[in-house]
Structure formats: C-alpha cells, structure tokens
Design a binder for these strands. Sequence first.
DNA 1: GGACACATGTAATACGTTACATGATTTT
DNA 2: AAAATCATGTAACGTATTACATGTGTCC
Lengths: 200, 200
Amino acid sequence: MSPQDPSRSGGTDRPLTDLEACVLGVVHGRQPCTAYAVRAEFAASPTRRWSGSAGAIYPLVRRLHAAELLSGEQRPRGSRTSILYRLTEAGVVALRGWLRADDLVETISLPVDPVRTRLHFVGALPEDDRRRWGDAVVEGLRAQVEALREEWRLDAFPTDLDRWIARGALDLAEARLTWFEEVRRRLGDSSALAGGRGSD
Amino acid sequence: MSPQDPSRSGGTDRPLTDLEACVLGVVHGRQPCTAYAVRAEFAASPTRRWSGSAGAIYPLVRRLHAAELLSGEQRPRGSRTSILYRLTEAGVVALRGWLRADDLVETISLPVDPVRTRLHFVGALPEDDRRRWGDAVVEGLRAQVEALREEWRLDAFPTDLDRWIARGALDLAEARLTWFEEVRRRLGDSSALAGGRGSD
DNA sequence: GGACACATGTAATACGTTACATGATTTT
DNA sequence: AAAATCATGTAACGTATTACATGTGTCC
C-alpha cells in the first residue's frame, strides 16, 4: 500500500517516516495550525535536516489528511482557502507509535557529524590546507558554542522541555568542540594521516 | 548541466554532494578499488546515513567515472568485467575542494540527534509510556557507550586518525548519555511538557 | 556438485529540493 | 497604488531505497 493511498485509515500501516512524524508532532503542539505554520517551524529549526520546502510539506500534509491522521477545517481566505489542521485520534496513535518504537536502533544511532565525516578524508589535503581547515572549523565551532551558551544564559524557553532540548544541543556542541580542539593540535603531523581510510 | 552529464570534465562544476565526496574519499584511501569495496565500506559504517545500496553506488561511481573524477582500469572476471578505480587529478581537486569548502556552515551545523528530535514531541505520550521510553533509551545509549569504550580500550586502530575519529564518536556518545540521563529523571513530571512544541 | 558468500548490476518507486507561479495582506 | 511579505501551491528534477536478477568463486 503506497504512502499516499487515501484508503489507509488506521494506524496499523507501515510506520511513519521521520518527516511525517515531525509534521504530526508540530501540528500536535500548535493545533489548530496550517501547513504554512509547519513549514515555518521547520525553516526556523537550527538543524539542516529538512528545509521545510513547500514541495515537501504541502503534499505531505495532504497525504496525512487523506490518511485521516489529520483532520482539516476549511477557512475561506479570499478566492483561496486555508486549512486549519488538527490531529485525529489515529494521528495521535500514529505519533505515539513512532515515539515509542519497539526498535530503538534508529533512535539510538550515533548522530552523523559532518566534521567527523570530513576528518576521515582530511589526509587528502596538503599539510598547510589541513591546518587552515582545522583552524576554521575550531573557529566555527567556538562561535556555535558561544551562541548556544548565550541562548542558554538568556533562558528564554517557553517550557522546561525546551530548556532540556537546548541543553542537549549545547552539551553536544561543547563535547564536539573540546574533542576537535584536541584533534586540531595534531593536524600538522603527517605521520598519522597516511591511510586516509574510513567513510563514517 | 545535470550531474550525470558526461561532458563535465573539470573540477570547476557545482560542488560535490556529500555522498559523491565520500565515495571519492573512500576510493582515495584504498585505490585502486572496486565499486563493491566502496559499497562494503559504507555498509560497514556504524552511522546510518547511507545504506551503501547497490542502486546508489554503482550509478554514482559510473557518473564520477564519466565526469573523469575517477579513472577505471578494466579487469576481466569471467564474462563480467570488474573495474578498478583510482582518483584522477581532477578527482583529487574536487575532493579537496569539498573538504576545505569556503562555506563551513554545513560542516559546522549541529549534528541531528534522533533522541533530541523525539524529545520535542514526547509530550504526546502518556506519563508511564514516557517513562518507559526514557528507560529504554537510557539503556540503549549505555550499551552504545559501552561498546565504543570497549573498542577504544582494545585500541585496534590502523592509524592515529582512526583513533581520533573513534574518540570523537565516543565523546559525543558520552555527552549524549550524560545529558539524557538527567532528562530521563524528569520525564515523569507532566508540568514541563504541556506545550510539546518545536521540531528540531 | 550444491550451497553459500562475493560481486555487479537494473527497474520500479518514493520523495525532498529547487524553481516557478500566483493570490492575499500589510506596509510605505 | 507599488512594493514587500505572507501564504498556498505545482512541475521538473535528481537520486537513494528496496527488490530483483544474475554471474563467479569457494568450501564442504
């Protein structure tokens, strides 16, 4: 049964994709809300996983609506109509199913770190480029940590949950910075980089 | 000019995608090597970013070959032929260009953490499910850290670079575990979760 | 010589991105 | 009323995934 099959009605189907689940989650958090609001929230997200592009969100929301995981309330808006979405019971069930997946492998999986990925291949750079790259990355990571610390200091979080999430981001960023500062110190030694294998 | 346009010959084109760059990087590290070897390395990677599926790698390698970023040496193998690839000069240039990208935004960007993503929406779970989920995640993260620590302890890394990369993965995993243990302690309080907004 | 892993692909499918198009509302 | 911004979409495109098909070498 294809994902956009409108005959799907229950929560007994294939599990949600991450994007579907996140859309359901966002709607759940701000219902009633429009597809545009979901889009805006994705666009505002600091991570670059999804762009929240129109071509992804509008069709996806329509699909979730057709699958009756979302209910829509028409709201006239000139010649066009806006739709205010809410989660249906099936939508809540589906979202919960995604959250407490029996298989946690994907949830637990080690986050992909673009710095670590690139580090695998840094042996392909000449020594001075390597050092320059390391300096630039350290600088970028420091700025990132600084920004997250400032956000933390201001403590303008609507809920405790938001604060915990921000804390997690900050802790991760700090750990990465500390680690990479150590690595950078050694980026000059060619001896260690001969192989250049691995792909993350 | 489309990515598989065989007329592309230099390194002056659009920047490489991450997958393209990683393929070049792997070939660079083990050249000469076959598409299958690249595939195997992706499949062996602990992260789940790419599956290294045949349908992705074989066409991609052919594209890189057509673009003359890879050179191929035919090797008869029964009725089929195997191709041993190497990086061309243009391939090295392209790989280096990807590594020391002028725009580090993507490199620096905060790693996507599936745990953090799910935490955004955990308010949609009833309280006891929430606690159960938290316990399961902590258990999973502990096992992950344990495995990485063991790998670290054995210290069976071909190069220093491999060791640093493993250290980075371990540090990240430990930071995530420490953070989430703290979070889990509070997953019982409903007060904090009322909003349930955010999308990572 | 059958089973099994190694190795090389192709076809169908799904979906996220970019780029474009257009309507509605607010600002100046 | 022109410009900018908010809002709702569509079309073309590329490409990663799954599932399948098939050849090749090795091990018992």
